[in-house]
Design a protein around this nucleic acid. Structure first.
Lengths: 206, 206, 206, 206
DNA sequence: GATGAATGAGCCTTCATTCAT
DNA sequence: GATGAATGAAGGCTCATTCAT
């Protein structure tokens, strides 16, 4: 039944679009009101859809919250990975990667707030993260880890557990980003990035 | 009326004891179930008292949560400050301070969990922080900042904004602590401390 | 979008109906159990709806209580005003008005009970009266006051502050109504009305 | 055992004193905060005694509330009765009685507020009235009723049910008293009394 | 499939009352 | 007898989720 198949395709496409819509709305509302302060009603309203529709798209509040992080995380990582792939050395890959993801966060202020509020890369059990999301997060982390591993191998980085280095780097970078926000983003992004890179080199390069 | 005075003293002492009991119970429950997942009923039960008694001791759920952080934070800071005071150089003060607060957290695993869950030194608006707590946090930060400032002055630290250095240090240390927990505390505390100190020296010493 | 408009109309109509249902249920429960003795749960049950639905309809217990008074008060006043408007003299207007509102109260025994319990025209600070209700009460009083004023002008009533006369009249009439209830409503409404009118004439006519 | 008897007497006397204290405190607090808004704790504090002591003195909140009314009611009636007893005619008795009880209320502003808030002489089921109080209230009413009955007999009053007349009179007088309060007591008590008497004569005298 | 009205479990908090000291 | 700390039942309200239209 090609007709049915086409319908399925259409249906799926529409569903995907609705989901994207919902997730983007959720990002805005969660960023503004926090997880506890956000009602599903608010998200539906922000997304311009009915509550029931929202529930047809996501499994519940927790899943939706996780999906926001997954969605943006995926995008952010993809961009960072693409950029870093063009590097000729692990150190350069790291520099390019940082530049890329800071640019991404600067372009997505709502996600930045969420990221700083709740995204604890060191968290014991990041709240509301499904298995799918967890595995995806691991993949993302793995990219950074790979860069560190290569850098250790070629002697440009200190010998430490790469995943540890990645987590420390992310944690420290959160401080830079918060201070940047507290300062009303007065510092140019390029300067911010340079300081973040400098920190990493000081902490991890030989 | 010395009788009344004595009674007041007794009453106050008892109240203080009850409050400590309640705060300790709250620490355990908040650590295990998180803020949102904790019912006041649970805390009362854990403290072995009736709900009404708990409410005679604290003003509400938020205040109680804040009190847990304040209580332990105060203790931790006092110990770290005392220890660091005996140092003969800024660098040694930092080392002693880190050793002290890690020891404290190792002795108070529930507070450690809370600390890692919610104590985000980089947070934009740390939830539920009363003015008392805020000032207390500032004092704590100030101590660390002072050490960094002295270290910059005597040339042992890089020239950076001291409060920035303090926040980065704390953020990075959280990663060490989480990994330590994830590893079931298999690493001896002394070794953990050494790695944390080594990181700070790498990141901030000339 | 005429569809949406129609839906809005439908929605509004339904909401209005539900609100009326809720208010009528509340009237019964408040009349039977008093304000303090009434739980919102009871009202919801009496109205045959869930608690959440009730809260979708009214803002809370106080607002609901006020709404009952407002609703019935409005109806009662409208009827009394309509009737009195047909009178050819102030005295006749008063007679018709009294006849009308007593008939209304006789038809709405639950509201009568509420009226006797709480509607104290002499109250210093009538509890729970929102601004809307206050203005409505003023309107009601104004109507009666107008009749008295006209009666004073044409010489049929004694010269007194009309609003005082209105309040005294209402207070005295409450006694008639309570006694009627205590007597199990054995006295015909028409006779009751005649006695109430006689009282007013004795007290206020020249 | 005369010793024990004396102790009992002392004990009783002390208890009676405490009870009076408590009732007076309760009067103030109930007048200021209303029945629902008053906590037993508040009354105890106002009376300068411990909560347990208060409960040794009265059976509970409702009983205490009733006791306030009973206490003052008794005093008020006693004075009114004494005064009225010196009258040479029913009409004069009524005049003297009114003068007396208005003076009493003017001297006890807290009781006046309570009286106007809650004392519904026409109420179907006056809240919280114990059997003792009910009988006392009947006695009080009986006095007034007796005056009316005598006045009907000697032809000075209209022929109506005396208890009805008494209740109507009280209800109407509440309006006078509320207006007097609303007017900040600007009107002299003597003038107020004259208007109240005038009303009664207009309504009930032949 | 979309809608949004309806649901009701759940939680924070208060305060009348009791009872060990 | 006086005390007041302790109790815990009770109730207003919210909001995630469902399901009839």
């Amino acid at each position: 039944m090609p007709e049915t198949q086409q319908q399925n395709r259409k249906t799926k496409a529409r569903k995907a679009m609705y989901r994207r819509l919902a997730i983007e709305a959720a990002e805005r509302v969660f960023a503004a009101q926090g997880y506890a302060g956000t009602r599903m009603q608010d998200v539906a309203a922000e997304a311009g859809m009915a509550l029931g529709t929202l529930y047809g798209i996501c499994a519940g509040k927790e899943e939706l919250y996780g999906a926001v992080h997954q969605q943006r995380g995926e995008q952010m990582l993809a961009r960072a990975a693409d950029t870093a792939a063009q590097a000729s050395s692990p150190l350069e890959a790291l520099r390019l990667g940082i530049r890329s993801y800071v640019a991404f966060l600067a372009e997505h202020p709502d996600y930045l707030r969420l990221h700083l509020q709740e995204d604890q890369p060191w968290a014991l059990s990041p709240r509301f993260i499904s298995e799918t999301q967890r595995s995806q997060w691991r993949q993302g982390l793995a990219l950074t880890v790979e860069v560190f591993r290569a850098g250790i191998a070629d002697g440009s980085f200190v010998e430490e557990e790469p995943s540890h280095m990645a987590r420390v780097m992310i944690a420290a970078h959160q401080v830079f980003l918060v201070e940047w926000l507290e300062d009303q983003k007065r510092q140019p992004v390029a300067a911010l990035v340079e300081r973040m890179i400098a920190f990493v080199e000081r902490s991890f390069c030989r």
